[in-house]
């Protein structure tokens, strides 16, 4: 499904991160190599604390790697930028702005003008199903609605790639399922490159072209598992259940520190 010869949209080469706080060094990420193709939906799956956010934030340009380099279209990532849209688990909406103003924020701050900002905001608010809530403030919205705004706000900037850090992690199961479905539907319309962090095996199987499994801290990539089934996927289909068992074991192995049988799906990276 993925053309290996195609140039990578996002590439991480030997990216590692060590945090030093109060004189102690915390290795958050061991050297990681990863290539995400244009238009690909890649999920990073791993137990919490394994460095998923760290990897994503390095690609976002919010933190610099201690070693290695990350590139977008072959150009090194040196800082944050609107061509990479980041969706936060905590939504990070600006509470002093209305829904409309939040979504207009990116185009406005980049100098596209009020009319263009309004046009884009209206389109994106409609896409995420929030018409009628334009004048609401974030605190008047439910968690699911907040994250819809978070996604619309990033899309209004028409980013090249979308980085999502457990965007549905704080939502209840039902809302999470609805948002996963809606995100997938919208993604299928445009097929932007997506790098999506999750600790939910189901979420990864439902969304991803490829699932990148990370080990417990200090994080490194232990397996990259393609998900071939056509979308929309039925999580109760036999192949989904097999895949789920496989991925669950891969992740749990990491948490338990046990050494299971090599998986037939496992595709070792290093």
């Amino acid at each position: 499904m993925i053309d290996r010869a195609a140039p990578a949209k996002i590439r991480a080469k030997g990216v590692a991160k060590t945090f030093s706080s109060e004189g102690r060094d915390v290795v958050a990420l061991q050297p990681v190599d990863l290539a995400v193709a244009e238009g690909e939906f890649v999920c990073i799956l791993g137990p919490s604390g394994c460095g998923k956010s760290t990897l994503l934030r390095i690609v976002a340009g919010l933190i610099a790697p201690s070693a290695g380099s990350a590139t977008l279209d072959g150009r090194p990532i040196t800082g944050p930028g609107p061509e990479r849209g980041l969706v936060f688990q905590e939504y990070a909406l600006f509470p002093w702005l209305t829904v409309m103003q939040n979504v207009m924020y990116g185009p406005l701050v980049r100098g596209l003008g009020r009319r263009e900002a309004e046009r884009r905001a209206k389109t994106q608010i409609a896409r995420v199903g929030l018409e009628g809530f334009e004048q609401h403030f974030p605190r008047q919205l439910s968690g699911g609605m907040k994250q819809r705004v978070g996604i619309a706000r990033v899309w209004a900037n028409q980013p090249d790639v979308m980085l999502m850090d457990e965007p549905f992690g704080a939502l209840d199961a039902i809302t999470r399922n609805i948002l996963q479905r809606d995100l997938l539907k919208l993604w299928l319309e445009e097929r932007h490159t997506v790098l999506f962090v999750t600790h939910s095996v189901d979420e990864a199987i439902f969304l991803a072209d490829r699932v990148v499994v990370m080990s417990a801290r200090p994080g490194r990539i232990t397996a990259i598992v393609p998900v071939e089934a056509p979308r929309p996927r039925d999580l109760l289909a036999p192949e989904s259940i097999t895949l789920k068992a496989e991925l669950t074991r891969l992740v749990e192995d990491q948490v338990m520190g046990a050494r299971g049988e090599p998986s037939r799906l496992r595709e070792y990276v290093n």
Binding site: L62, P82, R84, L86, F88, E90, A92, F94, V109, R153
Partner: peptide, 11 residues
Amino acid sequence: IYIEAARMLGT
């Protein structure tokens, strides 16, 4: 996080 979000959006 507000500052991070703003920088990612092009501020």
